[in-house]
Amino acid sequence: MSFLDVLYFIIPSAIFYAAPLILVAIGGVFSEKSGVVNIGLEGLMVIGAFVGILFNLLFADTFGAATPWISLIAAMVAALLLSLLHAVASISFRADQVVSGVAINLLAVALSLYLVKRIFDKGQTDFITERFSRYNVPFLSDIPFIGPLFFTSVYNTSFFAIAVAFVAWFVIYKTPFGLRLRSVGEHPMAADTMGVNVARMRYIAVMISGALAGIGGAIYAQTITNDFGHATINGQGFMALAAMIFGKWHPLGAMGAALFFGFAQSLSIVGSSIPYIQEIPNVFLLILPYVLTIFALAGFIGRANAPLANGKPYIKGQR
């Protein structure tokens, strides 16, 4: 296999694995920029994957080829509702946000598996028939080098994820809404003094994170696994969390990190058929994203600073 062939093989598959990670990581950015730690991303992804698959199975006959996209909306709504639970606990009830996130993760897995067993009477769902399909982008795929790299046999969802990252960057850094979002995450008291409704901003942020995580989970399920069982979402939410930190709480940074992790993930899966890479024991590729995140946090790859008020409930009048 020539070097180019390897590239044509590995880059599209990296983007393919990265798409759900990008969306979930961006969701994490919204939540944490507003000062709410969201460990529950994994659980929100699980609910998204479950509802996406369930909706797809139930309505494939009604909606035909559009089913996967409509399933994304269903998954988004379901995850948004679950994220409200996290919002209520951590914003209104002043719960420890990490603990509440852990509860969300446990609840999501348990609830979706419970429902799978109730509805399908077995441990996993059937395989979906309508899924996202690969296609070649007209004209663009004919460009030499770039064409086969980025525009041949791609999923629309990958473009969607990258577009969301840029929209998120614009919203967070170029709009008044984004300024308020960042201010309640850095210094809620100052924001409150200036008339920003801290609780409301944080609720909105957590709901956005739930919506994006749900979409991410549904994309993962409808492109990679095509069914839902206990191991469908197995740490992708935490990997998205890692991407968010590795990307230093910046939407485009998170996207870059997610692409890189997608690269590592695809290497660990397809690496065994690529010369040189197959010499590296698989375990190193598997743990790479996690080790890099620890290094990033320790400041070896530039300092990563969390939003100042991240994880702290805002109590009016308290210094």
Partner: peptide, 22 residues
């Protein structure tokens, strides 16, 4: 009844303990 019902119960208990303030 699927065993996951107990996991749900445990998750809800954690949720309420964490929200001890309310």
């Amino acid at each position: 009844i699927p065993i996951e019902i107990v996991e749900i119960v445990i998750a809800v208990i954690i949720f309420f303990v964490a929200s001890g303030y309310i």
